[in-house]
Amino acid sequence: MSADAQALSAHHFSLKIDGRSLGLFTQCTGLALAVEVDVVTDGGFNDAPVYLPTRITYPPLVVSRPVSRESPKWCRWVQETVRQRRPLTGEITCMGVGNERVATWELLDVMPVAWRGPALDARGGGVAMEEIEFVHGGFLPQAGSPGRPASA
């Protein structure tokens, strides 16, 4: 296996909400954005529409990991956090081999919206997983990460 392939297979993610570590996760989906556009056709020019950006949307962010003794605590944390109804900030860090930071994104206006425990099936041989789902108002890469230059 090449060094690049080995590094990619060893990635994991840490998540902090308002500075509090939620621990390490083995999977993260939804770290994305999409630009919605209005399509305008210019009168007389039928070959090239004009695209006008209208808004940026962010899908929910879902992190997952194997169930642990801490899992019930995170289920309660989601419930308590939603009841507080205050804006939160978050930080998700992708880490590679040796726990070195590969990239970090700051999340804005974070709110947990779901905690999902494992599907309990005594016949299965898979790993029991938990998921925490968040909505957010956007993200900014940290200084030194791809997409944002290091601070001067």
Results as ranks from 00 to 15, higher is better:
residue 2 S to K: 09
residue 2 S to I: 09
residue 4 D to V: 15
residue 5 A to C: 07
residue 6 Q to S: 15
residue 8 L to E: 10
residue 8 L to Q: 12
residue 10 A to Y: 04
residue 11 H to S: 14
residue 14 S to Y: 11
residue 16 K to M: 14
residue 16 K to E: 13
residue 17 I to N: 05
residue 18 D to K: 07
residue 20 R to C: 10
residue 26 T to D: 11
residue 28 C to A: 14
residue 28 C to K: 10
residue 29 T to Y: 09
residue 31 L to Y: 04
residue 32 A to I: 05
residue 37 V to E: 06
residue 38 D to P: 02
residue 39 V to T: 13
residue 39 V to E: 13
residue 40 V to R: 06
residue 41 T to D: 13
residue 41 T to N: 14
residue 42 D to K: 08
residue 45 F to E: 12
residue 50 V to H: 05
residue 51 Y to S: 06
residue 52 L to F: 09
residue 57 T to H: 02
residue 58 Y to H: 14
residue 60 P to R: 15
residue 63 V to R: 01
residue 64 S to K: 00
residue 64 S to P: 01
residue 67 V to T: 01
residue 69 R to G: 12
residue 70 E to A: 14
residue 71 S to N: 03
residue 71 S to F: 01
residue 73 K to H: 10
residue 75 C to M: 15
residue 76 R to N: 08
residue 78 V to I: 11
residue 78 V to W: 00
residue 80 E to D: 12
residue 82 V to Q: 04
residue 83 R to C: 10
residue 86 R to G: 08
residue 86 R to C: 05
residue 92 I to W: 06
residue 96 G to D: 10
residue 97 V to S: 09
residue 97 V to F: 12
residue 98 G to P: 00
residue 100 E to Y: 13
residue 100 E to W: 12
residue 100 E to F: 14
residue 102 V to R: 04
residue 103 A to P: 01
residue 103 A to N: 05
residue 104 T to M: 15
residue 105 W to F: 06
residue 105 W to G: 06
residue 108 L to E: 13
residue 110 V to R: 02
residue 112 P to D: 12
residue 113 V to H: 05
residue 117 G to F: 00
residue 118 P to F: 00
residue 120 L to P: 00
residue 120 L to H: 01
residue 121 D to I: 03
residue 125 G to F: 08
residue 127 V to L: 14
residue 127 V to H: 08
residue 127 V to W: 13
residue 129 M to Q: 08
residue 130 E to R: 00
residue 130 E to A: 02
residue 131 E to D: 05
residue 131 E to H: 03
residue 132 I to V: 15
residue 132 I to K: 00
residue 133 E to L: 05
residue 136 H to Q: 02
residue 137 G to H: 02
residue 141 P to A: 06
residue 142 Q to F: 09
residue 143 A to K: 04
residue 144 G to Y: 12
residue 145 S to Q: 06
residue 145 S to H: 09
residue 145 S to N: 06
residue 146 P to D: 09
residue 147 G to S: 04
residue 150 A to Y: 10
residue 151 S to E: 08
